[in-house]
Write a protein that binds this DNA or RNA. Structure first.
Lengths: 264, 264
DNA sequence: CAGTGGTCTAGACCACGAT
DNA sequence: TCGTGGTCTAGACCACTGT
């Protein structure tokens, strides 16, 4: 433990000594101390040494371990908290973020009811199977075309009204043990399941939104007229190291709901 | 100048003295020093004392003015920079953010070409007129139904292809001097015009996105088939103090473009 | 009460940009 | 060379949470 990074000096007199430690190479191999600490913490998260929901060591403890001041650790944790990888709780400590909280649900489901009321959501899995990745999916997941992927198709209903038709593609290697049974019986957010059962934590996603017309299949599953306008949301989710681990294509009925977005 | 806020003490021995300075009231009128400084800076921005694009006083200077340490000013500015109200430039100073930059354009126009290439954009104003605010618009703008608003309708084309049909509603009182001529001749982002000519700076917006079908008018102006699926984006923009100052309804053609969003 | 994160200070040096 | 923001430290006290 207490592995001191090569780039970090324990000489208190010169904090800059931590950086010019390798002045040999021509390239500007420079990084502030707190960024190095941040990277070290992120390593612990990625390796699973500190698991979602767990308490991590205190700031002073980490400062001692890494041989830096508490303020430097603080700045590293500040950024990780801003990125939703850690959660600070005054008086208690700093915890690894988890998808098992109502708080984080709305971060990855932006469809809101027009008249905001709590809703009963109902999820129905239509299909789960293994298949060879189509070229487009393989490209988005950083895999080779034809590699094994898990395919899921499901419908979500709010207050009994079918509203979202979703297709998912997951890397087969990571989700070997995912079965329809396991997915159906699981209560709670899917990313929570991925996190605890498959050690894969989503931390970021990009979405591309378009307008589309319902085809026969979508119209039937969503109980709308054929050619009805639908919101088409294509998402790629990433885990640590910007590694893509999910492609998701959703069709949203936006008669009584809307996709909510904040520009700031 | 150098107006010391009532809540800020200049006693260096007790930073907490800044808060219990008013222990009279029962309510917990508490706020960290840096938040008070942040509020003071925001006042200067809102009042126009520091205008968009301008250099604000240095951190040490502000520290002296407000009788706090540089670190406290720094934390206040950190937050304001994170909210895109200020922009820091190492070696130069801290500047008031402005919409007259390519950087800030993409923040408020999320429609991207599917194959990312620089595009020639062309804006055509269809209509500009004054009218009495419809109930819904008045509600969103925090006005009374029937109050005067400026209405703008325009089409934006990318590489010659009409892609966005937009309607805007602006408070009449704020935009008295806005004419069709002025709007047409103006080159650059509309929010830049609002900022320099009308002293109204947009700092935040919320959007509600739905799928819609093109009606006859939209189909004609966007050169698509009637009933084509379109992205319908309803935006409310806010200035300082969370005051709404614009309602915008856009219809986007998403055949060769998509609405790009980051979930983090 | 002890331990945690949250705030504040004072002083140091670095990297950058303009002069 | 100077002034700016950027980093780092060390130490202090506060507010919150558990025991």
């Amino acid at each position: 433990m207490s592995s001191i990074p090569p780039n970090v000096s324990s000489d208190p007199a010169s904090q800059s000594a931590a950086v010019p430690a390798s002045p040999s190479a021509s390239s500007p191999t420079f990084s502030p101390l707190y960024q190095q600490i941040k990277a070290l913490i992120m390593q612990r998260l990625q390796s699973g040494e500190w698991k979602p929901g767990e308490l991590i060591p205190s700031e002073v403890e980490l400062g001692n371990r890494f041989k830096v001041s508490q303020g430097t650790v603080r700045k590293a944790i500040d950024e990780l908290a801003a990125e939703n990888l850690l959660v600070r709780r005054q008086g208690k400590g700093t915890f690894v973020a988890t998808h098992h909280e109502a708080r984080s649900q709305f971060r990855f489901l932006r469809l809101m009811p027009d008249s905001d009321q709590p809703q009963v959501t109902d999820k129905k899995v239509i299909e789960l199977k293994r298949l060879r990745a189509p070229a487009e999916i393989a490209r988005l997941l950083g895999m080779k075309s034809g590699d094994s992927v898990v395919y899921v198709k499901r419908v979500m209903a709010f207050d009994g009204v079918p509203t979202i038709l979703e297709e998912l593609w997951l890397p087969g290697a990571l989700f070997k043990a995912l079965t329809l049974e396991r997915l159906v019986e699981y209560k709670g957010p899917m990313y929570g399941l991925f996190e605890t059962e498959f050690g894969t934590r989503m931390i970021r996603a990009t979405e591309q939104i378009r307008a589309a017309s319902a085809d026969a299949d979508a119209a039937q599953l969503l109980a709308v007229e054929k050619s009805s306008p639908l919101l088409c949301v294509e998402r790629v989710s990433f885990t640590y190291g910007d590694k893509p681990v999910e492609v998701r294509r959703g069709l949203y009925v936006t008669n009584r709901h809307h996709y909510q977005n904040e520009l700031s």
